[in-house]
Design a protein around this nucleic acid. Sequence first.
DNA 1: CTTGACCTTCCAGTTACCGGAACCCTCATG
DNA 2: CATGAGGGTTCCGGTAACTGGAAGGTCAAG
Lengths: 129, 129
Amino acid sequence: MNIGQASDQTGLPAKTIRYYEDIALVKPDRDSNGYRSFRAQDIHKLKFLGRARTLGFTIEDCRTLLALYEDETRASADVKQVARGHLAQIDAKIADLRSMRDTLSHLVEACAGDDRPDCPILRDLGGKS
Amino acid sequence: MNIGQASDQTGLPAKTIRYYEDIALVKPDRDSNGYRSFRAQDIHKLKFLGRARTLGFTIEDCRTLLALYEDETRASADVKQVARGHLAQIDAKIADLRSMRDTLSHLVEACAGDDRPDCPILRDLGGKS
DNA sequence: CTTGACCTTCCAGTTACCGGAACCCTCATG
DNA sequence: CATGAGGGTTCCGGTAACTGGAAGGTCAAG
């Protein structure tokens, strides 16, 4: 299967698939003409990667998860630890964003949004009360 | 005031301040020895930038906000529009993260996290039921 | 005079790709 | 047979917002 088909099958752009090969996440064969040739197993890996990335795992997380995935003797605790670490990061990010959101939405609500120059948003950013 | 003091005053790393000068967000004077020389106004701008960045505005947003800040005749509506746009992006990001978080936390809860290889997280990523 | 803290510029690396150029391969059509 | 369309290939550069580090100039103190 060529890269175009692989892209269709996995939903990943061809560029992304080439990149994943570059960083050695997948290792497709090559045909005699130099074209990449993907086997079912490669497609499966790519789908795995796509799903993991959707869940926000970093590439390095993905590398770890993929290794665990392929290791039939892994302990589920190892996987859980990676996932929990990522979950904590997501939580931290959400908390950050929520705090930004709260501040910003107060400011937006306080701003008249008309033709006049007076603006609580800029006043706050400027540090003036 | 040298860059070290400016850094202390604003809480921004010296590196960041130099970067902001590179991209023309601030334009400190130079002393005869080549050192940057920050005036009170520069410090004020840097604080403005720091605060805006904390709220998650992009550098380009900051550039716009700074221009509006310095324009005494701006309409608050213009500022509000930038802020609202940013708020919408924050909301979108939060929604994204929450959706990831939900999926992932289900998986983490379903995983025994022991020595056995069986792992719902990998099962899900692998697309197997 | 030397030491150490500060400053300077410039180059490279970070994350996870995307866009585009220049070129090759294959098949079908005029 | 030339040619054009629609694959594929590599490589280079850019993204956002910095950060780290090297090589070297400046300054105040002992």
